[in-house]
Amino acid sequence: MENLKVLIVEDELIIAEDMQMMLEQLGYSVTGIAISYTEAIKILEFELPDIVMVDINLKGKETGIDLARTINERFEIPFIFITSNMDRMTIDEAKLTQPSSYLLKPFKAQHLYAAIEVALSNTSEGQKQENKEPDENAHLIKDSLFVKKNHHFVKIKIEDIYYIKADGNYLEIICEEEKFLIRSTLKNFMNRLPVSDFFQTHKSYIVNLNFVEALSSNYVLILEEEVPLSRNSREMLLERTQRFS
C-alpha cells in the first residue's frame, strides 16, 4: 500500500507550490513539479504518477492540451485540467482529450480533493456494471485499487491482494498487513481481476494463487488462514495448475 502519487504541471510556481502543500496535507505524494511540457515528459518517463494536474495554458510551444494528448497516447493515466478561464475554442479542444476532471483557479484544498475523487471515479473500470452506484471509497484503475483511508485515497497493487471475502454487497480486501472494505459484488470484482492470478474458491471467496501455501480437500491456506474451497472449485483448480497435483 502506498499514497496516491500526483505530478503537478503548472508554470506559475506560487500556484504549484500551494498545490503541493495542499496535496501533501491531504495525504498524497507529489512526484514533482513541471513548468513546461518538456519537463513534464521527463518526470513521467522517470516515475509514472497515478494522476497528473495539468495547467491548460502552459507557456511555450506546447500547451497543457498537447501534454494531455501525449499522456493519452503514451502513459494512459488520468489527468485533471487546471484553468482560470477558457474561451469556447479552448474548451472544445480540451474536451477532445477526455480529461478525468477539471479544477478552476483559484481553488482550496477541498476543491482539489473533490477533483481527484471525481477523476478516480471517472477513470475507474466497471463503474456501470450491474446497474448499481459505484463505490465512492474504492476505484479500480489498470493494475491498482485506490481505496479511501482516513479521508484520502491510498493505492493497493492488485498483485499484493492476498484474498477477497464477500459479505453481501461488500467485499473485504485482505492484504499482508491491512484489510479494506469496499462496496462491490464478488462477481463484478472477479470480472476485473487478472484471470491468471486470481481464482474463486467458494461462492464468497477469491484468492490470489501466488500466495496459496497449501491445498486440502476443503480449503486453501493463505497467511495461515483457511480459505474455504468448494468441491467443484477444487477440481477446477487441480485441472488448472499442476502445482498441487
Rank of each mutant, 00 (worst) to 15 (best):
E2N: 10
L4K: 02
L7N: 07
I8M: 03
V9F: 01
V9W: 05
E10Q: 05
D11I: 01
I14C: 00
M22G: 04
E24Y: 10
G27E: 05
Y28C: 02
Y28G: 11
S29F: 04
S29N: 15
V30M: 03
G32A: 07
G32I: 05
I35V: 12
T38I: 11
I41C: 07
I43S: 07
I43R: 13
E45C: 12
F46I: 01
F46N: 12
E47K: 14
L48V: 00
M53T: 10
M53Y: 05
M53F: 15
K59N: 05
E62L: 11
E62W: 12
T63Q: 00
D66S: 07
D66P: 12
R69V: 13
E73G: 00
E76L: 05
E76M: 10
P78N: 05
P78D: 06
S84Q: 10
N85G: 09
M89G: 02
T90N: 04
E93K: 15
K95Q: 05
Q98E: 09
P99A: 02
P99W: 01
S100E: 09
K105Y: 00
P106S: 07
P106H: 11
A109N: 02
Q110N: 14
H111M: 13
Y113W: 12
A115K: 08
I116V: 11
L120N: 01
S124D: 06
Q129T: 09
Q129A: 09
K132C: 05
E133P: 01
P134C: 01
A138I: 00
I141G: 02
K142C: 03
D143E: 15
S144K: 15
S144Q: 08
K149C: 08
K155Q: 10
I156S: 07
I158R: 04
Y163V: 09
Y163N: 04
I164M: 04
A166M: 06
G168T: 09
Y170S: 06
L181C: 04
R183T: 14
R183N: 10
T185A: 08
T185H: 13
L186S: 11
K187C: 03
K187V: 12
K187N: 15
N191G: 15
L193G: 01
P194G: 05
D197C: 07
F199Q: 04
F199D: 11
Q200M: 14
T201I: 06
T201G: 06
K203Q: 15
Y205F: 15
Y205C: 07
V207A: 13
E213I: 01
A214K: 12
S216W: 02
S216G: 03
S217C: 04
S217H: 11
L223C: 02
E224C: 06
V227I: 15
P228H: 06
L229S: 06
S230A: 13
N232A: 14
E235H: 13
L238R: 14
E239G: 10
E239P: 04
Q242D: 14
